[in-house]
Design a protein around this nucleic acid. Structure first.
Lengths: 134, 134
DNA sequence: TTGAAGTTAAAGAAAAGTGTTTAAATTCAA
DNA sequence: TTGAATTTAAACACTTTTCTTTAACTTCAA
């Protein structure tokens, strides 16, 4: 029973990077080449990408993809986007304007800064009107 | 550039399961043994677990460790502990007392019994005041 | 233009994961 | 208790991933 996708080596490199170290500095610390640090970091990012995609798949298992909210969108524009998309496919969304924004804030705390979405966010909806942000 | 963690076989089995088929029925459809369907499903679930854990790790990466809540702590004592620790490092927590308890309940449903924490829980906080229980 | 940071490619050895079979448990409702 | 559904274990071939080295390449600021 192993834990996450990332190997010890990969977590080690990501931690040092987060601290602002260069690949060369990390290479010196863990006693290898900077090229190696680069590939380790790269495969770590790839694993993270795959982890995200895996959970996306879970949503799609009992939801349908509603729309993509583009990075840069104003948070307060989002509810009307979602409501109109949901209307197109005859789904009654379970949230009102306020609670929808709160739902987004809670489930994707990192996806916005101030009033602005800072990355693309996928929106999924179930037949019952439950909304997931993937 | 591969996509998620799950193999085609694993997604196939999960989809059939979602439709309510038994392992035996699936085994007949994809022409293998029910034992094999079982192990495929199991490794799919394991992969999903690992995907989640990987993203958890990401949270801890750009958060700082705030404190450890000791097993045995009363749930209702937790907010003031967290608030005072956050104050020490000049972070304004994004939650009020009630929503903080709810946040804990939702993110660590297995870590408490009644009003009592039943295991040590690590607390992480971002600069923005977001709280994670690790 | 020089140097530091980062990336890419090829190649190999070790480790981990997958799908499979067979056979023997276990769970649990009728 | 019987039987269907599910789980577990061991074993095997196969594929993929990881870490590593070496060497050459790109970016970009000073």
């Amino acid at each position: 029973m192993k834990d996450g996708l990332l190997t010890d080596r990969q977590m080690e490199v990501l931690r040092y990077r987060k601290q602002g170290l260069t690949q060369q500095q990390i290479a010196d610390i863990i006693n290898t080449s900077k090229a190696n640090v680069c590939t380790i970091e790269k495969s770590a990012m790839e694993n993270i990408r795959r982890a995200k995609e895996t959970l996306e798949f879970l949503y799609t298992l009992d939801s349908t993809h509603l729309c993509t909210l583009a990075g840069g969108t104003d948070l307060f524009d989002i509810p009307s986007i979602i409501f109109s998309e949901a209307e197109k496919i005859n789904v009654k969304v379970k949230y009102d304007t306020i609670s929808l924004i709160n739902h987004l804030r809670e489930s994707r705390p990192r996806s916005y800064k101030a009033r602005c979405l800072c990355e693309d966010v996928e929106v999924y909806v179930t037949d019952e009107g439950e909304i997931y942000f993937g």
